[in-house]
């Protein structure tokens, strides 16, 4: 399937999901749609019919609140059905609104920020020690780079030459209570990672070619981990959601759902 079409479908499923279940976090879910679209269609070696294949690449989503995009992506890839996903947040459903490892295709439950990168370091270290060729990918939000645990890992990974680890920062510049600049400025983020001895790629996180090129380049880096700083737009794809803090929290009403779906459809 063409990437643009896939991304469009992901947005539509995710938007309907948060509308129907009155869920939050659609802004941060939409900022990473293209990143996950490229990962799952071009980069990751994963098999929906054997999700625990020992040679699979490992992808950990640290910003687990952006679950609607990952769940939608996994459903489209066939890890489970869209019908399964309809139980999202219902009583007894494992489709919790922070991702859950009890769902096929999800390696690690997250939701508390700053957890996945340390675990990813453990995975990558294990692969190194056992001469395994699979890769580990971890995606964090920009806001969660406030968490000290991430910086412990950012020190650790180059020390152990984890060149089989790629970190993706979904740099949409808005966190929970304000812009990144207002709350805890990360700029100059590339310089920070350079100083910590990472290979840095800075890209437009909505441009499929740039994303794919960066992932392929990162995989070929030797002797140190790579970080892809993906400049993105919170709420990307629906104009009244773009760059708006509100959509970290708000669930669309019926009119907003229809407007949003129309815009997504028109862009495809």
């Amino acid at each position: 399937m063409e990437l643009k079409l896939f991304a469009s479908d992901v947005r539509k499923i995710a938007l309907k999901l948060v509308f129907e279940k009155k869920a939050s976090h659609i802004g941060g879910a939409f900022s990473m749609v293209e990143l996950l679209t490229v990962l799952y269609n071009k980069i990751l070696n994963v098999n929906p019919s054997n999700p625990n294949d020992e040679n699979r690449d490992r992808f950990l989503l640290s910003k687990g609140h952006a679950c609607s995009t990952l769940y939608s992506t996994l459903a489209l890839k066939g890890f489970f059905t869209l019908d399964d996903l309809n139980s999202y947040t219902e009583n007894g459903s494992y489709f919790t609104s922070h991702i859950n490892h009890k769902i096929a295709g999800i390696e690690l439950s997250t939701g508390s920020l700053g957890h996945a990168l340390p675990v990813g370091c453990g995975l990558a270290l294990s692969a190194k020690r056992n001469n395994k060729s699979w890769q580990t990918y971890v995606m964090v939000s920009d806001g969660e780079l406030n968490e000290g645990s991430n910086w412990e890992s950012i020190l650790f990974a180059p020390q152990h030459k984890l060149d089989n680890l790629t970190l993706i920062v979904d740099y949409n510049k808005i966190q929970s209570l304000g812009s990144v600049a207002e709350v805890m400025e990360l700029h100059p983020l590339a310089d920070k990672f350079n100083a910590f001895r990472w290979e840095v790629f800075e890209i437009d996180g909505h441009n499929f070619d740039e994303i794919e090129t960066a992932f392929n380049a990162a995989k070929n880096i030797e002797g140190k981990p790579s970080v892809i700083i993906a400049n993105t737009i919170k709420g990307k794809g629906v104009d009244f959601m773009e760059d708006k803090l509100l959509w970290h929290y708000k669930s669309p009403d019926k009119q907003q759902l229809e407007d949003g779906l129309k815009q997504i459809e028109a862009e495809k």
């Binding site: 690690l108 990168l117 675990v119 056992n130």
Partner: peptide
């Protein structure tokens, strides 16, 4: 099968979890 994770216990425990997953 030994690692000194440094003075960083959150990372140490996360790494341990990752190793245990494998």
């Amino acid at each position: 099968r030994f690692l000194n994770a440094g003075v960083a216990e959150q990372n140490m425990t996360g790494i341990a979890a990752g190793l245990a997953m494998e």
